[in-house]
């Protein structure tokens, strides 16, 4: 039974994995038990979940690192000319 009790640090980690659907069933049970008696983690868990919901609402498209580097390189060339 002691195995089912985890520390806050692990609870936080499982909660993060949960957000990416990467927590196992055992981990989820451990988290649920922890949340029953730990209000700090309950609070963190609620805001973590809310963050996931907000992120899911938005369709993002980011630049890849290479794409950003290309933009940066060409811009910095011009910037240098300007700052001379």
């Amino acid at each position: 039974m002691g195995l089912f009790f985890i520390k806050c640090k692990e609870a936080g980690h499982v909660c993060d994995k949960y957000q990416y659907e990467e927590a196992s069933i055992t981990e989820k049970i451990k988290l649920k038990i922890h949340l029953m008696y730990c209000s700090a983690c309950r609070k963190h868990s609620a805001s973590n979940k809310k963050l996931s919901q907000l992120l899911n609402k938005i369709k993002f498209q980011f630049l890849s690192s290479e794409e950003k580097d290309n933009i940066k390189k060409s811009f910095e060339k011009e910037l240098k000319k300007h700052q001379q």
């Binding site: 369709k59 993002f60 498209q61 980011f62 630049l63 933009i71 940066k72 811009f75 910037l79």
Partner: peptide, 19 residues
């Protein structure tokens, strides 16, 4: 401050444009 433009705004501007 154009030195920071690419770091601060390129993702935002890109996302705005691609949609």
């Amino acid at each position: 401050n154009p030195n920071n433009w690419v770091d601060l705004y390129s993702d935002y501007l890109f996302n705005y444009t691609i949609t």
